[in-house]
Each structure stands twice: as C-alpha cells, then as structure tokens.
Design a protein around this nucleic acid. Structure first.
Length: 272
DNA sequence: CAGAGCACCTGTGGGC
DNA sequence: TGCCCACAGGTGCTCT
C-alpha cells in the first residue's frame, strides 16, 4: 500500500489528534505486530509517555515522545485511525490499538499483517538504514546524477531501495520513470545528466502532487475512517497496461523487474 | 556487489 | 457456484 505520499497523508491526519496526548494503554491483537520484541515489552517502553509530535521519515510514521520514539511501518495494508470509544465498528484485521489520555484510541488495522510497530530510544538505528528524503533540498539533479554514476544496478530496483532514497515504492517509481522517459532496466550509471535531471524533477513533482491529492488508493489504502486518496486518476502508467500511452498512444506494457510488476511505454522508454 | 527466489499474510479477480 | 492460481502499494533473508 503506502509509499511516501500515503504515509505523509496519514501523518497529517494523525498530527492534530495525537500532539500532547499521553499513551495510557497498548494492546496487541496480533503479537507479532511488535516483532522482534513482544507486545508486553513494547507497552512497558511507551505507557505513560507523552506524544510530542508526529513525523515521517521515508515510509516510517514517527511518534516522537517526551522520551524515545515510536515507529510504525504500514507495509502493504496497514491503516491507522483515531476512534472514540463506542465507534469501533468493524473490528476485523485490527492488529493493535493504543489508548490515549483523552480516552480516544488509535487502531492499527492491517489485513496482511506485515505492518510493524516498534520503539527506539533514539533514531540512529532507523536513520542508518534510510537514504535521502526525495522532497528535501539536498535531493538535487546534481546529487542524483553523481550518486547514479557509481551504481551499476538497474535503475528501478535502485529507486526502490530505501537505503538510497527513502519513500519511493512501486507506484511512484513506475510513474517517475515514465515521465522521465527512462527504461526501468537501464543501468543507473548509464543515465545521462539530462536523464538524471528529468528523473529528479519527475520524482519531486509526482510526490508533491500525490500528497496534494491525499495519496493513491488502489484497494486498501485509507486514513481515518473510510477516507481515500485521489491520485489514482492521475496515474499515467501504473496498472494501465493495455491502455494507450498518454504521450504517444502506443499500448502500455507490463513486465517483471526485480519481482515487481512494472508498467511502461515500450516506445517512450527504450532500453539502452 | 547485483540479482533471483522465497518468506511473511490475507484477499481478490481471472480462468475454467 | 466453486476451485485453483497469480497477484498485490513492502521488506528482509539466503543463495548464486
């Protein structure tokens, strides 16, 4: 499910609900949700702590506490919603829930159970595994071209690598490579300066617009109760194989790259 | 180092 | 309608 724009949307939704609240209780319905530690140990770390602010790093949602940090990764199907007692509704697939000092609850709903919740005293370990923020000023055309020059990997798997750029996933990589007219199998070090420039611009523009649209809902992404992202209608190639290319009308195709479904225009994005 | 394959889970949609 | 298979927005592990 969620890539950077969807995670950012969830963070913006949560922020006004959580700031200043004390975590009074935590309960895991699916014990592995706090893996590698057990839920009791996690609860011990965070109960009684105050949430100072909600933030995002890559695809991680961060709750910065008065001491330490909670990190939440939604993986494929995770959803967070703030609910009042009595409006719990459909309790299916809820893997964990927090209770706040205002007696509201934060429910973590996760059909496929890949999502994880954890605690860290400081964010060093998280930071060490994450690359540049693609919406930061440091992510410039020059930075990208310089970094690509030393990598021999195919460009799509590289862009999906969170240790390189933090936050991109399958949807936005396909969209950005299409806009930049780059074949997903092209070696990173073979990209020209002009291609790197187009790619950098495409990534930033696409992410910004998607955040503006509250992200992309394909099937399961939502935030709060029943809210949906609107970027799906703006997707140019993702899951549009068979449809005409919006640029040249050639039918879009779907291939496998790094075990992921990959959508492209065979005329606009030529290998080599 | 780069890439393939599989594991972790459940639900959905297509083909027969 | 029912069954079986492929596939899904992510990541981490092992093996070559």
């Amino acid at each position: 499910m969620p890539e950077l724009p969807e995670v950012e949307t969830v963070v913006r939704y949560l922020r006004p609900h959580l700031g200043g609240q004390v975590i009074t209780d935590f309960h895991a319905h699916w014990p592995k949700v706090t893996a590698p530690i057990v839920p009791e140990e996690f609860a011990e770390c965070i109960s009684g702590r105050t949430i100072r602010e909600v933030d995002r790093r890559g695809k991680y949602i961060l709750w910065n506490l008065d001491q330490g940090h909670i990190h939440i990764h939604l993986r494929m199907t995770g959803q967070l919603s703030v609910i009042s007692p009595g409006e719990v509704g459909d309790g299916r697939h809820i893997t964990a829930e927090f209770t706040l000092s205002n007696s509201r609850q934060v429910a973590f709903r996760d059909t496929r159970k890949f999502g994880r919740i954890g605690y860290m005293d400081d964010l060093h370990a998280l930071e060490s595994g994450l690359g540049i923020e693609p919406l930061s000023a440091e992510f410039s055309p020059e930075w990208l071209h310089r970094e690509l020059a030393s990598r021999r990997r195919q460009i799509k798997p590289l862009l999906l690598d969170q240790a390189f750029i933090a936050g991109l996933g399958n949807i936005y990589v396909d969209e950005a490579l299409f806009v930049a007219r780059i074949h997903p199998l092209k070696k990173a070090c073979d990209l020209s300066s002009a291609e790197a420039g187009r790619l950098q611009e495409a990534i930033q523009e696409i992410l910004k617009e998607s955040i503006h649209q509250d992200g992309t809902t394909i099937i399961s992404f939502g935030f709060g109760e029943g809210r949906r992202g609107r970027y799906r209608e703006l997707l140019q190639v993702f899951r549009r194989d068979g449809e005409p290319c919006p640029r040249c009308r050639t039918p879009l195709v779907k291939i496998r790259v790094a075990q992921r479904g990959t959508h492209l225009c065979p005329a606009c994005q030529v290998p080599g």
